[in-house]
Design a protein around this nucleic acid. Sequence first.
DNA 1: TCATGTGAAAGCCTTCACAGCG
DNA 2: CGCTGTGAAGGCTTTCACATGA
Lengths: 205, 205
Amino acid sequence: MEAKLPRHTVMRLSLYRRLLLKYRYLDEPYIFSHDLARMLGIKAVKVRHDLMQLGVSGDRRKGYHVNSLLGRISDKLGRQGEAVVLVGMGMLGHSLLRHMQGSENPLRIVAAFDIDPGKVGKTFDGIPCHGIASLTDIVAQQQAGIAILAIPPDDVAGVLPLILDSGIRGILNYTSLHLDVPEGVIVRNADPMASLDEIAYYIDA
Amino acid sequence: MEAKLPRHTVMRLSLYRRLLLKYRYLDEPYIFSHDLARMLGIKAVKVRHDLMQLGVSGDRRKGYHVNSLLGRISDKLGRQGEAVVLVGMGMLGHSLLRHMQGSENPLRIVAAFDIDPGKVGKTFDGIPCHGIASLTDIVAQQQAGIAILAIPPDDVAGVLPLILDSGIRGILNYTSLHLDVPEGVIVRNADPMASLDEIAYYIDA
DNA sequence: TCATGTGAAAGCCTTCACAGCG
DNA sequence: CGCTGTGAAGGCTTTCACATGA
């Protein structure tokens, strides 16, 4: 895990993987860059450049070998079983959990947390919900590296420090606030509003 | 609405707007690019370049006038009251709805849709839920331009054509599938998995 | 001096153009 | 030919460097 791939390539590898997992059911052992591209709405040359970075080679007559490709992509993307915790089991958190559990997913959600005592101790879709106070212990114990943050904005100031102390190195942020994190922790924002604003701008163009 | 702004600038304008709306409560009429930048975790020069595109000017001693800035940003971003429909009132759709309704939001969610007859006719957080069959009529009647798509993957093939026929020009896609849309319709993907995969890759770097 | 305003450089990503091979 | 493989060009975004003005 040393050779850094371009950021956009990483995002697409994730798409390729999911698509190939479905494609595998067709019992078609090979796929053309062109077909992969069409199914994702991108250009074939972009697919080939991405796969070039992985060091995989295609066969000029048959295309790329699906299983080899899947293996190579999964090698390069984060470890298969990386443990993820879900912070905030409100309606959004719960629906994200269900969404994850329902799909073929290389990451494992290992625990959920909430401040509502009515939720602590219960199990949601097979995942136990703990109080925020036990976050540090459980993250350490499960060796979780990623947190999904789905709490109300007012709770962020109180909860973020606990997450950072726990050793979490990546956060998928569903709140509308900017998270101030130390160097080395990475944040990806998933708040719907910015996306909607962007769409609203471009549909009037 | 003709002068096209750079794509990343548009996304940031949305962030500036939300931040400034909160900042306004401080009764501080001016703000420095440097402060705006710090609160969002970006560089001040990026903020100034963005604001340059809007044609606003700051005062060298006081910074930018907050209310003028807000006005100019809202002018440039999509029309204030753009109507949005929510397709899919499962747990994810419902939580997105609640998330939107709960926050200061320049876009209006005007209707929801689901295939489940048990949901049709009910009202969720003040928004009526209709059957998919009436999507075309209601979108036309409300002049909605944007749809949020939060349905199971298996339903996409059946529902997407209805959305495209209805005149929707922008889709925020929460499904894991690539949406094949005609030129002129814009799609932004919000599926959590790709973001998680990307995070998982970078935390091991 | 400190903040804005701005052209130019640097960096990153996509697309083009074409070589090479079955 | 049609596909893969790949350097180079082109476009977009960020960052640098510095002019300007209170």
